[in-house]
Amino acid sequence: METFNFLDKIIGESILSAVLSALLPLIFLIVYALIAILGELKISAWIQERLGPMRTGPYGILQPIAEVVKLLQKEDIVPTNANRLLFNLAPFVMFTGAFAGFAVIPFSPAFAPAHINLGLYYIFAVGAFAVIGIVMGGWASNNKYSLLGAMRSASQMISYEIPGALVVLTAAVLANSLDLQEISLAQSGPFWNWFLFGGPGPWTKIWVIPFTLLLSLIFMITSLAETNRTPFDIPEGESELVGGYHTEYSGMKFAMFFFAEYANMFIVASVLTIVFLGGWNSPFGEFMSGYFWGVFWFTSKAMFIVFLQIWLRWTLPRVRVDQLMFLGWKVLLPFALVCFIVLSLYRILY
């Protein structure tokens, strides 16, 4: 299948098509965030045998819009002794980092906002923005809880980027590319060609499947840690640190942190989708595959991962800082290294 940007084909390569390519993910992000917030509310409610929001619209489906309107109306408070510049800047830095990640995500063979050949590397690079935003916000709030949360998040995100990067490196080794479209293309065909099941190859590849499964699991865990979701939500840790780095934020700035969290969730989910679940490939080979079906398969796979994240959040308790470090450095990193070496050998041998 050929990859291209459909906007370039329609309008021609111009400024307009570039702006439209950047706008489309933004629209997608807003719609997705609303759906994800509703999903979080409803899934948490159903898991806890509650009804969840029921008043706004039929079955409460307009609840996320109501929440956004509420957050927009709220008073914007800046603490007296806060560093105003950094305090105001932090949510935008975080959101920018999250949104910039969308630039390289291939939604379909016919659409990736920016088709660059270093996509994976780029996503990890802009993902680090989140740390800067959190530390900035936590420090500038002039609140001890915020500071503790910021420090925790810095150590957490930096240490979890290493196993995450190892996993992604393995994918690059398997696909022989860092280009996200290329990685997706490398997994074309039915679902047993996904890297989750060892990638395309003869049936003898069966012995690498445990390693790729393990790798995807490791990436799932690191992605939870990088997006500050339970069980790794210790930077927020509402029972300990009240709200962590966003204790002092209110109104729209808080909403920006919120949006950024959901955007980050989608980014890590889409990286997992692209790297292990075949991206926009149909699970049934040629059946239901195409440029439009690509969007469908990609979003539904990514949303499934988002659902998994929400599901895990409402099941598990929170880990402690030292246990988090133990898990990151002493469990995930060695396992990821082993898998990396095994899969590199597999790549050389076959």
Binding site: I43, A45, I47, R50
Partner: peptide, 11 residues
């Protein structure tokens, strides 16, 4: 938690 997802709601 998955089994509770589909159980009867109490609220």
């Amino acid at each position: 938690t998955f089994t509770h997802l589909f159980s009867k709601k109490v609220t």
